[in-house]
Design a protein around this nucleic acid. Structure first.
Lengths: 137, 137
DNA sequence: ACGTATTTGTACGTATGTATC
DNA sequence: AGATACATACGTACAAATACG
């Protein structure tokens, strides 16, 4: 699998596809370190800009996390189950950056917005929470 | 409010903060067109790169959508309510790009993963769906 | 304790492509 | 056709955090 700069699909998306396939195919396992940006630059002869765009894309999809020392495949992590009463509403959205820091959630992770029948809302990190509908409060 | 290149917080984050505050403060209303990238370049004397990073950040937060003609504040849109039976589990995550296209959901919008007691799952766009726990199937 | 190497973060520049008005 | 505006993609440079010897 290689990258074709003359293809219709942008270089950075091709690289993201390639890495995504390696993650979903199990070639890159949860917790495993990804090659450095410079490795991809050297391997495919593309610019660092393109590599960084690809990484940003995968980060946005929640597939990888990036720290100063490199990126790694996100680990699923055990999610706690929260039971909710009938009439409770649930939706999700991306947190703003201040919220993200406050809740202590990584980039690329949505928050669950849980509104109970009284109108009170809770914000929970979607990667640490599974909401289960119960038959009573 | 201005941007201080010598501040600790990066220029692009300062700009994102500024635009986010304008959105949350109602100065920029849902559906309203944002100034062009070049306007921000001129207004604050920063590079287009920094402006684009700020926009990407806000896009990732689901606050704005960007098209070829410019960016605008995302409109909430009427969300349909879906009732779920007791025992049904709900969580959320970001879709991968192929999923995003398949479901027809904009960038920056998470998907709700709904698993009924039999184990079957549904993917729904979180900005168009509110899940409501019912007291029976 | 210190310097060095590695790696990502930020920020500037330039150029070309493409869609819209 | 021309102007506008965003998308992609290359380049460079320096800063900051971490890891290593």
């Amino acid at each position: 699998m290689a990258i074709d700069p003359s293809a219709d699909r942008p270089v950075y998306k091709q690289l993201a596809d390639l890495i995504r396939a390696r993650i979903e195919g199990g070639e890159l396992r949860p917790g495993q370190r990804l090659p450095a940006e410079s490795d991809y630059v050297a391997e495919f002869g593309i610019s660092r800009d393109s590599v960084r765009r690809a990484m940003a894309m995968l980060r946005g999809e929640g597939l990888i996390v990036t720290e100063l020392r490199g990126s790694r495949v996100r680990e699923a992590g055990e999610a706690a189950t929260v039971e909710i009463a009938p009439g409770t509403q649930v939706t999700a959205r991306m947190p703003t950056e201040p919220e993200r820091r406050q809740i202590g959630v990584a980039e690329g992770v949505p928050v669950l917005v849980i509104t109970d029948p009284s109108g009170e809302t809770r914000l929970l990190a979607a990667d640490r929470t599974i909401v289960k509908a119960g038959d009573e409060g």
